[in-house]
């Protein structure tokens, strides 16, 4: 019974009670010493728990947060930079490898052959003389 009344008392503090419940609680509190004592102890605990002054993490807390955010931003920038850098290095590596392969497998060492354009031997070129053709 006492627990039930205790619950009702706590409910009156944290929720809502009907007028009938309120009347019953007032009646019980007036007649029951143990309930009154218990209610008083609950109220003391609640009073002690209530924050009396605003808490703080100490001076310059906001500055520390801002610095942390700036550092995080920098870290992200570095990550993005190195993410692309990785691909740049890979592309350059492939290009160099292709150039080396071309140098190894081409017959001569001209810039054209290194870049993959085959040098046309002079004897293979066909002279086209349109003017001559028209005369003939």
């Amino acid at each position: 019974m006492e627990t039930k009344n205790e619950d009702l008392f706590l409910q009156s503090l944290d929720g809502s009670v009907t007028p009938e419940q309120k009347e019953m609680l007032t009646h019980e509190l007036a007649g029951d010493f143990h309930l009154r004592k218990s209610a008083d102890q609950f109220l003391r605990i609640r009073e002690k728990l209530k924050r009396s002054e605003p808490d703080s993490f100490g001076p310059f807390f906001a500055e520390r947060i801002i610095n942390k955010i700036k550092n995080l931003k920098q870290e992200v920038d570095y990550q993005i930079f190195f993410f692309f850098k990785k691909y740049q290095v890979a592309v350059i590596g492939v290009v160099v490898a292709l150039l080396v392969l071309n140098i190894i497998f081409s017959d001569n060492l001209s810039i054209r052959s290194v870049l993959g354009f085959e040098d046309q031997p002079k004897e293979d070129t066909v002279a086209i003389n349109l003017y001559q053709d028209l005369i003939n």
Partner: peptide, 13 residues
């Protein structure tokens, strides 16, 4: 954002 931190630090702490 710094103003927001200062404003709500007490509650969070």
């Amino acid at each position: 954002f710094k103003t927001l931190v200062n404003r709500h630090e007490g509650k969070v702490a």
